[in-house]
């Protein structure tokens, strides 16, 4: 990967300090501690609101808005969900740009989000016009108006991942402080989102258990078989039709028929 230093020292690339952040806040430059009071307060507020809010989309909007407030260099922000290692879906986008960028990445299967997805915790694009890692993406993203980007990995679970993306309309917009603040927001968001996913996953699991339990009960009663035999029936129906066990059980409880063969193909 090209180094950020190369780009930022290149002539003609605006210095990150031209962003618009209070100079005092980045005076010591090392850890951004000059502005930590405000930062800590905002992150605390974010954590509380993520904790209190049960709706996932509202939480994602909170994360994106907090990132925009704390990182004034960013003109747009969004969260991308990457599914099946290729499809990139924008969530809670602050404007139209993130959707356009995600569509480009979905279409050509390359880009910073996809790299943040499965390889790196942080992907920087200091200057979209001079990026050689994803040439096709970079050209189209530049044309769409994304001149620099930061992508933070939020979570990876199976073949689904989430990333927090920051966009700026000028090259070299994001300095070290923006990266550090972004990483803090991403960490807070990742924790809040994993809580939400766990709770939702368990709710789903309980509903499914109940449904499959009913299906097993009906089969046991109907055929006078054991719980294990009932499970094997459902399981083989699921395998032979390539349908999830939950869906097999739901359709069986609903219709009383156990689909055991895939319908013949024409």
């Amino acid at each position: 990967m090209n180094t950020r230093e190369d780009r930022e020292s290149a002539p003609g690339v605006p210095s990150p300090a031209e962003g618009g952040v209070d100079a005092a806040e980045r005076a010591d430059g090392s850890d951004g501690s000059g502005g930590t009071d405000g930062l800590a307060r905002r992150l605390g507020e974010l954590a509380r609101s993520l904790h209190d809010e049960s709706d996932l989309d509202t939480r994602l909007v909170d994360v994106v808005q907090t990132a925009l407030q704390l990182i004034p260099e960013a003109s747009d922000a969004s969260i991308s969900l990457v599914k099946g290692r290729r499809r990139v879906e924008p969530r809670a986008a602050s404007g139209a740009l993130p959707g356009v960028i995600d569509d480009i990445q979905s279409e050509i299967g390359q880009g910073p989000c996809l790299d943040a997805a499965f390889r790196q915790r942080l992907v920087r694009v200091a200057d979209m016009g001079r990026d050689s890692r994803w040439p096709i993406f970079a050209r189209r993203a530049w044309d769409a108006g994304a001149r620099s980007m930061l992508c933070f990995q939020l979570f990876v679970e199976g073949d689904t991942m989430g990333a927090l993306n920051l966009y700026a309309g000028v090259a070299g917009a994001f300095g070290q402080e923006a990266e550090q603040t972004g990483a803090l927001v991403a960490t807070h968001a990742a924790i809040a989102l994993s809580d939400a996913k766990e709770v939702r996953g368990l709710n789903d699991a309980l509903v499914n258990r109940d449904l499959i339990g009913q299906a097993k009960g009906i089969l046991m009663e109907r055929y006078k078989i054991s719980s294990h035999q009932a499970f094997v029936l459902l399981s083989s129906a699921s395998s032979s039709t390539n349908t999830r066990l939950t869906d097999v059980a739901a359709s069986f409880v609903h219709t009383g028929d156990l689909a055991t063969k895939r319908p013949p193909r024409g």
Partner: peptide, 8 residues
């Protein structure tokens, strides 16, 4: 485990 738990 999550899937296993979800299918009883």
């Amino acid at each position: 485990w999550e899937r296993y738990f979800g299918i009883t």
